[in-house]
Amino acid sequence: MGKKAARRAAVTAPVLAPDEEVPVVGGREPCPCGSGRRYKACHGRGAGRAADALVRRPFEGVPSECDWVALREVVPAATSPLALAPEHAVEGVEVRLATVLPMAWPALRRESGEVLVGLQTQAGSGDVSRDVAHALLRALAAEPGTPVPPAGLPGPGPRLQDVLDPSAPLRVTVHEGFDFWVEGADGGPEVAASLERANAAVVPTERLTSVEAAYWCRLRDRAHLRWVLPHPEEALLDALARLHAAGASGLGGGTRFVGSFRAHGLLVPVWDLPLDSSAEALEEPAEAWGRRLDEALASSAPLTEAERGARAGLLNRQLTLR
Rank of each mutant, 00 (worst) to 15 (best):
L108G: 06
C66Y: 01
L101C: 07
V95S: 00
V75I: 09
E111C: 08
L82F: 05
C31G: 02
E91S: 14
C42T: 09
E60F: 12
P81E: 02
P86M: 03
F59L: 04
A53R: 09
V55T: 12
A47S: 14
A53Y: 06
P30W: 04
G34M: 03
H88P: 00
C31T: 06
G44L: 00
S80K: 06
V95A: 00
G44A: 02
E111W: 13
V90M: 07
E29K: 12
R72E: 14
L101H: 09
A78K: 08
C33Q: 07
C33T: 05
A53T: 14
R38M: 07
V55E: 13
A104E: 15
R56M: 09
V24C: 13
R45Y: 15
A83I: 07
V95G: 00
V90Y: 01
A104K: 14
R109C: 02
F59H: 11
A77Q: 11
P63K: 03
A78S: 05
A77W: 09
E94L: 02
R72A: 12
S35R: 04
G27Y: 09
A50R: 12
S64V: 04
P32F: 05
R28A: 15
A47V: 14
A83C: 11
L54H: 11
L84F: 01
G44T: 06
P106M: 02
G46F: 09
G92S: 02
A78I: 11
G34L: 02
A78E: 11
H43S: 06
C31R: 08
R38W: 02
E60S: 13
V62L: 15
V95W: 02
V69C: 07
A50F: 07
D52V: 12
R38N: 14
R56P: 06
P30F: 00
V100Q: 15
V90T: 15
E91H: 11
E111D: 15
S80D: 01
G26I: 01
A41F: 13
L84C: 01
G27T: 11
Y39E: 14
R96Q: 15
E91V: 08
H43N: 06
V100M: 15
G48V: 12
